[in-house]
Amino acid sequence: MSSTNNQDFLPRSQKWLQISGWLLPFLYVLIVAALYGAFLYAPRERVMGEVQRIFYFHLGSAWNCFLAFFAVALAGVLYLVTRNEFWDHVAAASAEIGIVFATIVLATGSIWARPIWNTWWPWGDPRVTTMLVLWLIYVAYLILRSSLPDGEKKFKLCAVFGIIGFLDVPIVWMSIRWWRTIHPVVIASSGGGLAPKMVHALMIAVPAFTVLYLTALLLRTAMHLHQGVARELNQAVLERGRP
């Protein structure tokens, strides 16, 4: 009784694949520029040394991770309003990419924190702990996705969880900040005064990662859509084969 048919979206997905094809050369240039900016153009940080260069990738991933999780919630709302399976494909794709970015944020942060803060995992920093909770929420989202058979029920439940997960982010942030300010805060927030060349490198790295996100989103959404088409064809064949 699906009100939407994945096959209707096939022409549209062809167009996305085309767009992502056009984006790819652009993406290559941006990523090379971002690498150049981070490793060669930006000056060596006086106190932290070379390890500070990880910051450009760290921040680029962090921004896109929030963008991706916002897209999951937005697509969830749009699914519940329109009941169009297309939005579930977008949410699924965006959650997967968001988790990759969140993992990069946690990994690069940990690599940076070891020499600078002398700890792999600074529980004292609210940003780190919030990012970890965020990561847990969206891994739970993917586990929920994988435990349900495709269908309207799955799309609805995942939309609801995606919305609740995103609404939870500011409350998690507040609670963890209060939790840590009660205990002595060892770590003051760094940054603030960035050298102009560092700002330039950042201004390339963030858009480069954003284009990476958009390209991946197009490709991944198209892939989920094609999986949906394959599922529908499979069902049609099974139904026709029945005596």
């Binding site: 847990l136 939870d168 998690v172 963890i176």
Partner: peptide
């Protein structure tokens, strides 16, 4: 798995 990450603020508080 679904519940615990969401209620982190409740547990902390």
């Amino acid at each position: 798995i679904l519940l615990f990450p969401i209620i982190v603020p409740t547990i902390l508080a």
